[in-house]
């Protein structure tokens, strides 16, 4: 049986990055990771496939996040088309750090599109992994990813900043 402390050592950083991109807040992300490991500790005896343990932890974290959203009365947008059709301005606003701008855009995106995009870029998850974590077909993952990428590229000047200096370390 997997040991929860070892799991925490191995996965807390990547789970925190996921939680931060989902919530946009450091304190919320830390709470989410904490709640994830507490839940994992309660259910760890039921884990049979150690190879899928990372997927399992990420699934717990997302479910907890969705539950938190529901408890706060946040009604998530269903579709990317629900977003107001603001003027597309693919230029970084002055004084806004790349990572912050990316986070702002992620928070505008419906959860069903934001999650696969984060999982795709943040960790090396396959479409199948994402599909299992979200409980949706692989085809839906691929189409949501494609639309989310198009949406974010239209608003985020990733190509124009490619030759700029490396990312500033946030502390």
């Amino acid at each position: 049986m997997a040991d929860i402390t070892e799991l925490a050592k191995a996965h807390q950083q990547s789970l925190f990055r996921y939680a931060f991109r989902l919530t946009g807040q450091t304190a919320d992300a830390e709470d989410l990771v904490q709640e994830t490991f507490l839940q994992a500790n309660r259910k760890i005896s039921s884990v049979k496939d150690l190879g899928a343990i990372k997927n399992w932890l990420f699934t717990i974290l997302r479910n907890q996040h969705l539950m938190n959203l529901r408890q706060r009365g946040n009604k998530p947008l269903e579709s990317i088309e629900d977003l107001p059709d603001c003027a597309v301005q693919p230029i970084r606003p002055e004084g806004v750090h790349d990572s912050e701008l990316l986070q702002q855009l992620l928070m505008e995106m419906p959860e069903g599109y934001r999650t696969p995009l984060i999982l795709f870029y943040l960790e090396d998850f396959s479409y199948r992994d994402i599909s299992e974590q979200m409980g949706i077909p692989i085809g839906t993952v691929m189409s949501r990813l494609a639309r989310a990428k198009d949406w974010i590229r239209a608003r985020y000047p990733v190509d124009s900043i490619m030759n700029q200096s490396p990312i500033r370390e946030e502390r």
Partner: peptide
């Protein structure tokens, strides 16, 4: 590929976690 890598790096650029390995068996 370069744009994809850049996006992946940006996505991973988050503040550092402020707690380290907790004793979750006790904390539960």
């Amino acid at each position: 590929q370069a744009a994809e890598n850049r996006m992946a790096q940006l996505m991973q650029n988050v503040p550092a976690i402020r707690f380290k390995h907790q004793n979750f068996q006790r904390d539960s």
